[in-house]
């Protein structure tokens, strides 16, 4: 099993450079950069910084959404990033946070169809230098990319729910999973079963990226509970069902957040929800817990964010512990 470090476009440039440099220096497998919609850093430019500042670590976008960008922009950004660091760039695609998209006035219609067409079109564009490409539903007509050729950019999908998971099994090179342990287990089973049915190879990468927080003192648990409150409230009911989590308990959290805010809602988070939605503990405990997921079929785990009260210390300790105990 491989360890990667995670960050988002809300991270500062200094942190992005530091984390990717640290992953490279310690020989970790990768760095994943998530796009926080509307954040001050831009996802593709930020990813270029991570690739340009490292020599061997894989760098992936996990994830960006075709609902907020023209698919041709994703295609040509991915090609440029892949050329900066051949065979080190991985592209993650997802629908995006529904609340974030709604705040931009974007309504999600037929996400499964949109994701399918996007993935297929990207692969066509990447191999169609100078050849006209069309996809009527995405309003692409007679588009002639002046780049690409032989590039094989791995596409990961960061999606949830049975329909999109089945689609990822069919179309993607890997899946970025996030959610309760039981859900992760069920998702992996679903994807593997679908691939077997379709006669596809078992070569498929499962990445687990779930909130991870280093806990050194009792007061650190407050951060853990806050994060769990946010994540649990945002988890679709279909995922709760797959994970066997009582919807009523999460509904209470949602109501608490709406009425009293995150801080107060966090006070009522049960240890069961903490266990389900977050990996926390000291560095050794976190590494052990992450490694435990290999039994479920996870190939790669991602540490952070939010890392812990002292992010630098948490990242250093977890990464070094992982390497030492490998």
């Amino acid at each position: 099993m491989n360890l990667s470090l995670g960050l988002t476009t809300s991270s500062s440039i200094e942190r992005t450079k530091w984390i990717s440099g640290m992953a490279d220096a310690l020989g970790l497998h990768g760095v994943w950069i998530g796009e926080d919609i509307g954040s001050v850093q831009e996802i593709f430019t930020t990813t270029s910084l991570a690739l340009l500042g490292t020599r061997r670590v894989n760098v992936g976008i996990g994830v960006t959404s075709p609902f907020i960008r023209n698919v041709t922009t994703i295609a040509r950004a991915a090609i440029a990033l892949s050329e900066i660091a051949p065979k080190r760039f991985r592209l993650g695609l997802g629908v995006g946070g529904l609340r974030d998209l709604a705040s931009m006035g974007i309504q999600i219609k037929k996400p499964t169809e949109m994701m399918r067409k996007t993935v297929r079109l990207l692969r066509v564009i990447w191999t169609s230098r100078g050849i006209p490409v069309s996809e009527g539903d995405l309003k692409i007509g007679g588009y002639r990319p002046q780049f690409g050729g032989k590039e094989e950019i791995p596409i990961f999908m960061g999606v949830r729910g049975p329909k999109l998971l089945a689609q990822a099994a069919e179309l993607a090179d890997g899946l970025i999973l996030s959610g309760p342990k039981k859900y992760v287990e069920e998702s992996i089973k679903l994807v593997l079963s679908r691939r077997t049915t379709l006669g596809l190879s078992s070569k498929f990468c499962f990445v687990l990226w779930t909130p991870t927080i280093m806990v050194l003192e009792r007061s650190d648990l407050e951060l853990v509970k806050k994060i769990v409150a946010i994540v649990a409230a945002d988890t679709p009911d279909s995922v709760l069902e797959m994970a066997g989590i009582a919807k009523d308990e999460v509904d209470e959290v949602r109501t608490d957040i709406a009425k009293h805010g995150i801080k107060d809602a966090a006070k009522n988070i049960s240890s069961n929800l903490v266990e389900q939605f977050c990996i926390s503990g000291d560095a050794g405990g976190i590494c052990e817990s992450l490694r435990h997921h290999s039994k479920l079929g996870v190939d790669e785990v991602v540490f952070g964010p939010p890392y812990g009260r002292d992010p630098k210390k948490a990242i250093t300790e977890v990464a070094e512990t992982w390497v030492r105990t490998e």
Binding site: T73, A80, E83
Partner: peptide, 16 residues
């Protein structure tokens, strides 16, 4: 240009 590599990434590499 929509048919070419994404300029901000090219600019980033050029700046480095």
């Amino acid at each position: 240009l929509p048919s070419q590599r994404y300029a901000p990434v090219v600019a980033s590499a050029t700046a480095l």
